[in-house]
Amino acid sequence: METVEDVTRMHLVGGNLALDFVNTRTGPPVGPSDDDVLTGYPELVAWGAYAGVLTTSEAAALRRLSRDDPDGADATLSRALRTRDHLDEIFRPLAAGGAPSTSALARLRDDEADALGHAQLEGGSTYAWVWRADRTLARPLRPVVHAAVQLLTAGALDRVKGCGGCRFLFVDESKNRSRRWCSMDDCGTAEKMRRYVAARRVRARR
Results as ranks from 00 to 15, higher is better:
Val4Thr: 14
Thr8Asp: 00
His11Ser: 02
His11Tyr: 01
Leu12Thr: 00
Asn16Arg: 07
Ala18His: 02
Ala18Met: 02
Asp35Glu: 10
Pro42Phe: 09
Glu43Gly: 05
Trp47Met: 01
Gly48Asp: 06
Val53Met: 10
Leu54Ile: 08
Ala61Ser: 14
Ala75Met: 15
Thr76Asp: 12
Leu77Ala: 10
Leu87Ser: 10
Asp88Gln: 10
Asp88Tyr: 15
Gly98Trp: 15
Thr102Phe: 12
Leu105Lys: 11
Ala113Lys: 12
Gly117Gln: 06
Ala119Met: 04
Ala119Cys: 12
Ala119Ser: 14
Leu121Tyr: 09
Gly123Ile: 04
Gly124Ala: 14
Thr126Met: 12
Tyr127Arg: 10
Val130Cys: 07
Trp131Ala: 08
Trp131Leu: 07
Asp134Asn: 14
Arg135Trp: 06
Leu137Asp: 04
Leu141Glu: 01
Pro143Phe: 08
Pro143His: 02
His146Ile: 06
Gln150Asp: 07
Thr153His: 09
Gly155Leu: 06
Gly155Glu: 05
Ala156Arg: 08
Ala156Pro: 07
Val160Ser: 07
Cys163Trp: 00
Gly164His: 02
Cys166Arg: 00
Asp172Met: 02
Ser174Trp: 01
Trp181Ser: 07
Ser183Asp: 12
Met184Gly: 00
Thr189Asp: 00
Ala190Glu: 00
Glu191Tyr: 07
Ala199Met: 04
Arg201Lys: 12
Arg206Ala: 08
